[in-house]
Design a protein around this nucleic acid. Structure first.
Lengths: 166, 166
DNA sequence: CACGAGTGCTAACTCGTGCAAGCACTCTGC
DNA sequence: GCAGAGTGCTTGCACGAGTTAGCACTCGTG
């Protein structure tokens, strides 16, 4: 029971986390719930429930919200726990898929990357990345949204859209 | 009507795509539906429905399936349309966030990466990335899964697990 | 004051997701 | 032949995601 309770609490927290995050982004952008819901293409009550942590939205809904907030969907996925911030092999993964490099170049970068990592492990240094730097996720636009910069761009458009519709 | 029909058809195709993909991965791994469902922690009938494109699984289910298949969840997300394949700056983005590297090392790799790209642009070569070569990428757990290499490793464990349980 | 616009939320509802129970089939060993 | 194990699928169901209709509230205007 207590274990289950703990789990529920943890899940509740996680869900609240994304709800709180969405609310903060929205408030930073100075848009109302109805405005965001409209732009995002979801119902206003549902957005309310999400923000208050009462519901766990699907990836699709998160994607729509991200579009409305003009932030990266990935940021919300990570917050929702769909996506992991995979740091270790993220570089190698993306390197492998990069269409701008030849195979040889990829191999070279891969080898250098690995040797750097080996070097750091040997030195017992985990890297000089500061927590703030970690926050700067691959979805750089997400970082922008953290500061409300990108989301602020939403505000004028939303206001005008609402006025026209009413 | 015809438009709606077309949309439904397109969605059905997309869903079938991931279902078919999952089936192919599973078959490559030579595991039965029940085995995979068990390892993945979902119901066997539901897995069947997913593979046949009758249902659209959530990100959570996809994540579980990916775990069972020992492939990257991201691959499934992309197939499901939750995630976009961002190729352009993915390398640089992930590099910036890598906790295993020092800032200097990041800069070095960044510079090398950029010079490679410049080199390729000057040569008018878009890259010689061949599917096979991508497959052999050490970090390409997702790529590996494309050929079922990583997923094949699942087979023995699954077989044993099933035997013990029965 | 009354009214309208905008705000966030409640409650009832529909429908899709995911599961349990069970079926029909194939294969193997006795 | 039969029984058992394994296979993939069908069906009915519960639950939660997401919507619609509507409410109570605040604020600005005439």
């Amino acid at each position: 029971m207590s274990g289950v309770e703990g789990v529920d609490k943890a899940l509740g927290q996680a869900v609240e986390d994304i709800g709180g995050y969405i609310r903060r982004q929205r408030e930073s952008a100075q848009v109302s719930m109805r405005q965001l819901a409209k732009v995002a293409g979801i119902s206003n009550p549902y957005l309310s429930q999400i923000e208050r942590g009462l519901r766990k939205p699907s990836a699709e809904i998160l994607s729509q919200i991200a579009t409305g907030l003009r932030i990266s969907a990935e940021v919300l996925y990570v917050r929702a726990g769909f996506l992991e911030q995979r740091q270790g092999s993220a570089v190698l993964d993306s390197l492998a898929c990069d269409p701008d490099l030849t195979d040889r170049q990829k191999q070279v970068l891969h080898d250098i990357y690995e040797s750097f990592r080996r070097e750091n492990r040997a030195a017992g240094t985990s890297g000089e990345t500061s927590p703030g730097s970690t926050t700067t996720s691959p979805a750089g636009s997400g970082s922008g949204a953290t500061d409300g910069t990108a989301a602020l761009a939403v505000a004028p458009d939303l206001t005008r859209l609402t006025t026209d519709q009413e």
